[in-house]
Design a protein around this nucleic acid. Structure first.
Length: 202
DNA sequence: TCTATGATCGTA
DNA sequence: ACGATCATAGAG
């Protein structure tokens, strides 16, 4: 698949754990003004709709989580802890309520812009995108991006051939939840230095 | 109305 | 270990 070609909508209309694993190695691209920012996905978590007690969708469709229940291939952005945004890739068909939380990216493009957004010096830095709220701050993803079509021109995910072999993917329990802890639905690129702090990164 | 609580992060 | 800081949902 060539550069600048968003993944097709069919990529997202599959079981959420499948999508989560296959998102590792894919590249999230964000156009913001003149800035083009990009990073390779190295850590994600799957949230399995109404069947998953750890998911925002567990208690059914509400105003807050409405975007989660739409057809896959869009972004679900939510506000948490009174100060942070987190971004999810919605999966499945209309009414499913499943999504993949983007937890960490390896910086590829737009490092200067992302560092500025994070109030950090523009030096090689593994703290730019190493956490779900950090990557939103770096890439300027907030309330306005909730519901953004990932097959559009502002935010998309593409395949640059940075394949992550299945054997280098590790599955672990999800982070920061009180229920559903037994599921190992957090997927990381083993050994990446860009994982989130709580995953063993910086 | 009122309250508890986060799919967090930075600093101590 | 803790403070910052607030939308959401459920209870009264």
């Amino acid at each position: 698949m060539s550069m600048d070609t968003p993944l097709p909508r069919s990529f997202y209309t599959r079981p959420v754990v499948t999508v989560a694993r296959q998102l590792l190695g894919k590249v999230l691209v964000r156009r913001y003004g003149r800035a083009l920012m990009a990073g390779m996905i190295v850590e994600v978590e799957a949230y399995n709709g109404a069947d998953d007690p750890a998911s925002h969708a567990f208690r059914g469709r509400t105003h807050r989580n409405d975007v989660m229940f739409r057809a896959g291939g869009i972004l679900y952005v939510y506000f948490t802890y009174g100060m942070h945004f987190c971004a999810n890739v919605v999966t499945g068909r209309e009414g499913t309520g499943s999504a993949v939380l983007l937890r960490a990216l390896a910086p590829l493009e737009g490092v200067r812009a992302m560092a500025r957004h994070r109030s950090l010096p523009a030096t090689p830095d593994n703290a730019l995108l190493s956490g779900p709220a950090k990557l939103c701050q770096a890439m300027k993803i907030g309330r306005e991006e909730n519901g953004t079509d990932l097959c559009g021109e502002r935010i998309w995910i593409e395949d640059r051939g940075l394949t992550v072999p299945p054997r280098t993917i590790i599955a672990l329990p999800r982070i920061g939840i009180t229920r559903g802890k037994e599921k190992q639905w957090r997927f990381c690129v083993a050994g990446s230095r860009y994982l989130s702090r709580r995953a063993g990164g910086s």
